[in-house]
């Protein structure tokens, strides 16, 4: 019995290890590549470990781009977008699931419809709106279209629908107002899905490229991916430099994932079950 269990565990770990190689491989290659010279990256056959470790790519990155400013911009934008999504998406979801609300289904339908519109179609209308509000080249302009996302509303609604209505009713009978119920009872039960939503919107905002690139008019307002993209030429690409930039971009996301991993897995697992 015990041997069979061990065997199964060993098999499981072996399968997971193979999966890990496939998932982590590109990241490891990126990390190693950021320490190679351009000539070595282009070399055939490709090398895995750098033949000669160089830090020149990082030095060049910090010299050619104001890493501190653009990282700060990315962070400000991400924090605002994440906080706003957590608050407002769950508020909408609360209204849709826990309040008697005649147009609820229609509103939810509109939200779903929104998810089907490709972002690129909205680029010019959104920019015209933001520019005529005088918000081009401001944080406000960059975050505005992302403050409440349809995906966030969808995710929160699916999760909240499973929270027993009796809890809410009981609180109402006890005389709680809706805000109190929302903040004290419903929201604490949503922790796993909030972590999921937080991570998804953080990644979305952190990686966003076209929109911030269009709204920011000076390089002082650039976010990380935008600043990084301005480093590659039309016909030539400095792969080493870009790989170093990619490492700078993905490290915070990886760290966040490590910290929120427990909630994240739980949130995705339960949001998928209906």
């Amino acid at each position: 019995m015990r041997n069979a269990g061990r065997l199964r565990a060993a098999g499981l770990y072996a399968a997971l290890a193979i999966g890990l190689v496939f998932v982590a491989g590109p990241f490891v290659w990126t990390l190693l590549g950021s320490f190679k010279s351009d000539a070595e990256i282009r070399q055939e056959p490709p090398t895995f470990l750098p033949l000669r470790w160089i830090t020149g790519n990082y030095a060049a990155l910090f010299e050619r781009m104001d890493v501190v400013t653009v990282t700060l911009n990315s962070a400000v934008v991400a924090v605002i977008v994440v906080a706003s999504n957590l608050l407002f998406c769950s508020m909408v979801a609360y209204a849709l699931t826990k309040l008697p609300f005649a147009a609820g289904r229609a509103v939810f339908g509109l939200v779903l419809l929104q998810m089907m519109v490709p972002a690129i179609v909205l680029l010019i209308p959104q920019f015209v709106t933001v520019a005529s509000l005088g918000l081009a080249d401001t944080y406000a302009g960059i975050v505005l279209p992302g403050l409440v996302t349809p995906l966030g509303v969808f995710l929160m609604r699916q999760f909240m629908a499973d929270i027993p209505d009796e809890l809410v009713h009981a609180a109402r009978v006890d005389g709680s107002g809706e805000f109190r119920i929302f903040f004290r009872i419903v929201l604490p039960l949503c922790k796993p899905v909030l972590a999921t939503l937080g991570l998804i919107t953080f990644m979305g905002s952190w990686n966003a490229f076209v929109w911030p690139a269009v709204v920011a008019q000076r390089k002082e307002m650039y976010t990380l991916p935008v600043a990084l993209a301005s480093l590659s030429g039309r016909e030539t690409v400095h792969y080493g430099l870009l790989l170093a930039g990619v490492i700078v971009v993905i490290t915070p996301v990886l760290l966040l994932f490590v910290f929120l991993q427990r909630y994240f897995v739980q949130g995705v697992a339960t949001a998928g079950l209906k």
């Binding site: 680029l123 010019i124 920019f127 015209v128 933001v130 520019a131 005529s132 081009a136 490229f209 076209v210 690139a213 269009v214 390089k219 935008v226 990084l228 993209a229 301005s230 480093l231 590659s232 030429g233 039309r234």
Partner: peptide
Amino acid sequence: PVGWDVAHDKITASIAG
């Protein structure tokens, strides 16, 4: 400095806006 990848979109959007 504007990235080549986004330059065309950025210029057309700025004209529209």
